[in-house]
């Protein structure tokens, strides 16, 4: 991940600050930075969202396509993730530099959203064994300022909420062949239930305490971080240790507890905001990329 160089004295300052629950920008250990979320930014997609957290900028676009379902689960659709770290984010991502990070992020997303209980994949099935909806989730990192996983998961949840899949009907003709008919009305579409989709909380261990939503400087002081994916009901779907250091088992339990608490509290304001966004409809002020 893009990193900054900091001196030993700055590290000591940051660690002492975290110990006293006063970080460099005045936040507490469990506070997030100011976030701005906007949905429906790209008109060519079936669903899109843009999240800005501090200077981290993430854009998610979702497109739905009809394909054959996977052979071992014939009555479910599925999701495919792809994360692109462009050189726009930082010069380190130029050429193939960002590819490794992109693959790591995509793989983690597969693990997090793999659970059948988070998204009802059966609703994506059109004709068991033959046709199903595949959602291609493409994530673009526009700017990188730490805490990529959290911003990505919030953006994906908002984009899935915004996704409108056109309703199709399967018609059988005389020879038994199946034909797919798209409904004529552009507003007749299928919406996904995003109630149980998890959000990722990354906790970085700095000194003896851990912080949520770490900036790049705080990340440079921490040896190890824990990634926890939490659903609105407080259940944990994925836990991963990141970084080159080791963790005490007690720290892991503590950090998982904090992650659960913080993650659970993240969902309610997000859903509220998304509902408000939707209800504004045409009156919503479209900001797009100009702010």
């Amino acid at each position: 991940m893009a990193s900054v160089q900091i001196s030993e004295a700055e590290k000591v300052y940051i660690m002492h600050g975290v110990r006293d629950d006063l970080r460099v920008d005045g936040r507490g250990c469990e506070d997030y930075r100011h976030m701005e979320i906007e949905t429906d930014v790209v008109s060519n997609t079936d669903g899109s969202a843009k999240v800005r957290m501090g200077h981290t900028d993430v854009l998610v676009g979702i497109k739905a396509e009809l394909r054959r379902p996977r052979p071992n689960v014939p009555d479910e659709g599925y999701l495919e993730f792809f994360v692109d770290c462009s050189a726009n984010a930082t010069p380190e991502f130029e050429g193939r530099g960002g590819e490794e990070l992109g693959v790591e992020l995509s793989n983690t997303l597969y693990k997090v959203f793999n659970s059948h209980r988070s998204l009802d994949l059966r609703s994506l099935c059109v004709c068991p064994g033959e046709h199903c909806w595949v959602l291609y989730v493409d994530v673009l990192l526009l700017q990188c300022d730490g805490n990529l996983f959290d911003a990505m998961s919030i953006a994906i949840k908002a984009a899935l909420f915004n996704t409108r899949i056109p309703k199709v009907r399967v018609l059988e003709d005389e020879e038994g062949g199946k034909e797919i008919e798209l409904s004529d009305d552009p507003y007749d579409c299928l919406r996904l239930r995003v109630d149980n989709i998890p959000c990722i909380v990354t906790l970085c261990k700095v000194g003896h305490r851990h912080v949520v939503d770490a900036t790049l400087q705080e990340k440079a002081c921490s040896a190890a971080s824990l990634l926890v994916a939490v659903t609105p009901r407080g259940a944990v779907t994925c836990v991963r240790k990141l970084g080159a250091g080791s963790l005490d088992p007690d720290s892991i339990f503590e950090m998982t507890e904090t992650g659960k608490r913080v993650g659970k509290a993240l969902h309610a304001p997000l859903m509220e905001l998304l509902q408000k966004d939707e209800s504004l409809g045409k009156k919503r002020q479209k900001v797009g990329f100009l702010a």
Partner: peptide
């Protein structure tokens, strides 16, 4: 724990 989300 504070989370501040808003529309841009």
């Amino acid at each position: 724990m504070a989370v501040d989300m808003r529309l841009p």
